[in-house]
Design a protein around this nucleic acid. Sequence first.
DNA 1: CATCCGGCTGAACGTTTGTTTAGCATGCTG
DNA 2: CAGCATGCTAAACAAACGTTCAGCCGGATG
Lengths: 193, 193
Amino acid sequence: MLNMCSMHADLTARAVIRDRALELFAARGPDGVSVRAVAAAAGVSPALVIHHFGSKDGLRAAVDDHVAAAFDGLLGEAPDAASLAETMLRELPAGSPAYLRRLLLSGDPAGTAIFRRWYEVTRSATQAMIAAGTMTEGRDPVVRAAFLMVNDLVLLLVRDQLAEVLGVDPLGAEGMARWAGEALTVYREGIFR
Amino acid sequence: MLNMCSMHADLTARAVIRDRALELFAARGPDGVSVRAVAAAAGVSPALVIHHFGSKDGLRAAVDDHVAAAFDGLLGEAPDAASLAETMLRELPAGSPAYLRRLLLSGDPAGTAIFRRWYEVTRSATQAMIAAGTMTEGRDPVVRAAFLMVNDLVLLLVRDQLAEVLGVDPLGAEGMARWAGEALTVYREGIFR
DNA sequence: CATCCGGCTGAACGTTTGTTTAGCATGCTG
DNA sequence: CAGCATGCTAAACAAACGTTCAGCCGGATG
């Protein structure tokens, strides 16, 4: 599959501003990036940013929607929910995972909606596996689905810290293999003797 | 154990400023809180904040150190590493858990240091359990310890979103029981049939 | 050709920011 | 009592902020 970036490169000034804002917001947060910085990165005047999005908050909302739409598109075609975090990192345009991280942690309703959708996909996947007889239901299937979901999500949230402590990027090739291997071992055999 | 708040209530203006800054920074982030807002919350003039901490960044650093010290104190006396997240929420002064969350996610060196210390405590605890024969070692003990650690840490990071989706605070009384129960079930029996 | 309209800019606006400065009060010390 | 450090404030500072406004430019339309 192609990256969203190259699918249909939107070169209108509006789209360029939105994409540059996405990258800057993802890196430093909306509060840490001025309208002037976004305009400079997009090669336009600060006034044009306001002209297209009404206000800085309008721009932020537009980026929110853009990222949420990309995430929804990913959820729709994801065959299995083994590691959504890793899939996101592979398929989403540059900066989106970091922006998604910020959205999920900001408490913004848009982030909460994404969280809920992610959970529902996980819940459906576990229910399917339970129905197929490959997974046990457990005493609290609702909590179990959330437990499995956040165990994957957390890789997106503390990726850098894990990379620093483990000495290997948990979402890189080697790290992913080790992490998934150990997670599957725990899920298969438990950890107690 | 007493709360750090009541252990030795420091009523100097410097301490009051620091504590109010902690709460405000935890809620809105350092960038979202002005020196004037901190000063108003502490009932002093903005100039006094600068007088005591040199600059806003100095204040932020002082709060970082204060929270990191409280966390270290907690790590030192924590008997088991069953759920450090829950222990933190119970023992730390108001706002500290939220501030710690922000610190861990900000990429700040202080946050990375805390993350590393948390990991080392978890690693030691798992090694002790392995030595005691109550836990299996697994193929990748280093990754396994990290896996177990972030599975607990994530409760602190996405507590609000989980509460919204599950309808119960995962770090409250009922939610904690359900969450810990399901986690232990997974760790005991795995999830596959 | 004249007109008009949307994309776009440069300059300015008022506000808020972090920080500085000069000076006031208070209490200890000689 | 004089002197002096300390804790603290009011006022002002320059810089950066989000936003507004008047107007330029180029291509489509009459």
